[in-house]
């Protein structure tokens, strides 16, 4: 039995507390293989299982690629008939009137503009809060404070978007209506406030990582020159982490663009070409969610909704890729 590799592995792990030594993978198939009486057979099977394991894990890992490919494939598969009739140029129109007795219009520009307006507004709100909180948690908070703040922010990330949307509908929208004396509280602004809350955890956690990974020597040099703690944070640490912070904001924006339920519930869903935060808007995500339930599968309207989905997919894809590139560049330096 001395030749059996498993026994040596056990020895190698022998320094660890006994409770850890019992592995959950004892027995089963592995145990059955080991029970094969002659050592030669065992070794051959062990070699095969090593190769098999590698192949198995590689195959599992490739499913992610497969899913991405299938997403692109099936979005286009459902959307493509639109190209021949009524034609892609219809998508560039400024009016979205998918259900009409005379002439249906599938211009997605008001939806794109709606998504853009809500996203930009949400970013304007989320950046100071997100980055400010990240700076505080990374640089200024005492350790005990940090242990309290971080789970709180993780909790915000955990609240389902439909619950935030519900809160927005019942509490926030009436508040916005009262404060700004509007006829309805279901506006781009209400949506943006909720989305800022959703983007905040993403921005905070990634920006915090970026700030914390600024080398200690930067801070020490600054403090040694007589700068105060605040000056160091403001003039040295934050600028040094800037690219990471930018990436954090972009990933937060990616989350905002793709958010569906909250905007569906609080932005009022009027497909208009507007830039005012006090108007109702309709985003791309909300359009798909609201209308997909009522269309006939395969109809022009159905295909148009898939084009909206494709636009959305590419928008988030590009945002993510640029953010990753920024992150990588800054991690290398």
């Amino acid at each position: 039995m001395g030749l059996e590799p498993d026994a040596k592995v056990e020895e190698a792990g022998g320094e660890h507390p006994p409770a850890l030594r019992a592995t959950p993978f004892e027995g089963g198939l592995v145990g059955a293989l080991r029970a094969i009486p002659f050592a030669g057979g065992y070794f051959r099977i062990a070699g095969a299982s090593e190769r098999g394991a590698r192949l198995f894990f590689a195959a599992c890992a490739s499913t992610s690629m497969l899913i991405v490919l299938l997403i692109f494939l099936f979005l286009f598969k459902e959307a493509v008939p639109f190209v021949s009739k009524p034609g892609l140029s219809d998508l560039a129109g400024t009016r979205w009137v998918p259900v009409s007795f005379q002439h249906e219009l599938f211009g997605i520009l008001p939806l794109v503009l709606g998504s853009l307006l809500v996203t930009l507004l949400a970013s304007v709100l989320a950046i100071p809060f997100g980055v400010g909180a990240a700076i505080y948690i990374a640089e200024l908070a005492r350790p005990a404070e940090r242990e309290f703040l971080k789970p709180c922010i993780e909790m915000l990330a955990a609240i389902p978007s439909v619950v935030l949307g519900f809160f927005g509908l019942v509490v926030l929208a009436p508040l916005v209506k009262a404060v700004f004396h509007l006829s309805t509280g279901l506006t781009a602004l209400s949506g943006a406030i909720l989305l800022a809350l959703m983007a905040a955890p993403t921005i905070i956690s990634i920006a915090e990582d970026a700030i914390r990974s600024v080398p200690r020597s930067y801070r020490e040099a600054s403090l040694a020159m007589g700068a105060t703690h605040m000056q160091t944070v403001w003039k040295v640490t934050t600028p040094a982490a800037l690219s990471g912070i930018v990436a954090a904001v972009m990933l937060g924006m990616g989350r905002v663009v793709g958010e569906t339920m909250a905007v569906l519930m609080v932005t009022g869903n009027a497909a208009m070409m507007t830039l005012s935060p006090f108007d109702s808007v309709r985003t791309m995500t909300a359009t798909i969610a609201a209308e997909m339930g009522e269309v006939t599968f395969g109809s022009t309207h159905y295909q148009a909704l898939f084009w909206v989905g494709i636009t959305l997919l590419f928008a988030t894809f590009i945002l993510n890729m640029v953010a990753q590139r920024v992150l990588r560049k800054y991690q290398r330096s």
């Binding site: 997403i71 979005l75 459902e78 569906t260 798909i288 969610a289 909704l305 989905g309 988030t316 993510n320």
Partner: peptide, 9 residues
């Protein structure tokens, strides 16, 4: 990064 509604589609 794929939006949840796109997963739905």
């Amino acid at each position: 990064g794929v939006p949840s509604i796109v997963f739905g589609l």
